[in-house]
């Protein structure tokens, strides 16, 4: 089984969000970046589990400039076989997907497992885009992935529940919670990661969108307190003042 796992780096959820350059750029000063949680915990770990059972390799691929290599090394320390870095800042989903496709198209991967979404730009786009470029099946919001008789059996979210589907390989899966349990890299993994192969390739992808400006979400005005004994008052406020019931 040859598996490709696209990984991204994102600001830690607790990071303070601010913008510079007339609200056109995200201010990265003092922001701690992490591997995108769904990529690290679910996509990568499930890929490793499948390879541990079926044999094969897990390649991680990341589009980003050189200082992202620490995140790639972390993925290698967790257990990925080798890594690729596309040497360019990621600017839009199509551009990243196109670059990953260009790298992957002639390497006959059986599976591409992405995370469900990046927690910064919240897209859920790249997996589906890679699948369409390759013209293969795709399942997103996947909470279970097994390889059975040469096919992928996947649980995906639907409204109010789950659907279990079977799709042929090769395919693209976007992983979310439920698929695997987080793995913490151990010392052996961290040491081993230093000597694993990390290939750098150039970016050829083009962007179809651009962010023209950012705005912070409006702050809530002060919370109005209601006494716990007086739920009639809360209902009245929700009806008359907030007009939501």
């Amino acid at each position: 089984m040859k598996i490709l796992v696209p990984i991204s780096k994102v600001p830690d959820t607790t990071a303070k969000i601010a913008f510079t350059d007339g609200n056109t750029k995200f201010a990265t000063d003092n922001v701690t970046f992490i591997l995108n949680p769904t990529d690290e915990w679910y996509a990568l770990v499930r890929a490793l589990e499948i390879v541990e059972k079926e044999g094969g390799t897990v390649t991680v691929i990341h589009q980003g400039v050189a200082d992202s290599e620490q995140f790639i090394r972390k993925a290698l320390a967790i257990g990925a076989t080798d890594a690729v870095r596309i040497d360019a800042e990621a600017t839009d989903a199509y551009q990243v997907a196109h670059n990953i496709y260009e790298y992957a198209k002639d390497k006959s991967f059986d599976l591409v497992i992405t995370g469900k979404e990046t927690i910064d730009y919240n897209g859920t786009q790249i997996g589906g885009m890679i699948a369409e470029m390759m013209d293969i099946s795709y399942v997103t919001l996947a909470s279970r992935l097994d390889i059975e008789n040469g096919k992928a059996v996947v649980a995906r979210d639907i409204e109010g529940g789950k659907e279990i589907v079977e799709i042929p390989l090769p395919c693209v899966i976007a992983a979310q919670k439920g698929m695997a349990e987080q793995r913490i890299p151990n010392m052996k993994g961290i040491m081993g990661a230093r000597t694993k192969s990390l290939t750098v390739v150039a970016s050829a992808g083009e962007a179809l969108t651009t962010i023209s400006s950012f705005e912070l979400a409006p702050q809530k005005t002060a919370c109005k307190m209601v006494l716990p004994e007086d739920m009639d008052e809360l209902v009245r406020l929700l009806h008359e003042e907030a007009k939501v019931i």
Binding site: A93, Y94, Q125, G127, M129, E132, M133, Y138, T140, D157
Partner: peptide
């Protein structure tokens, strides 16, 4: 749930920029 799976594919097939 379904649109998240469809929209990016349509975006590529039409080479249309997408807002998610």
């Amino acid at each position: 749930q379904n649109g998240k799976a469809i929209a990016p594919r349509v975006s590529v097939r039409m080479k249309a920029g997408m807002v998610a």
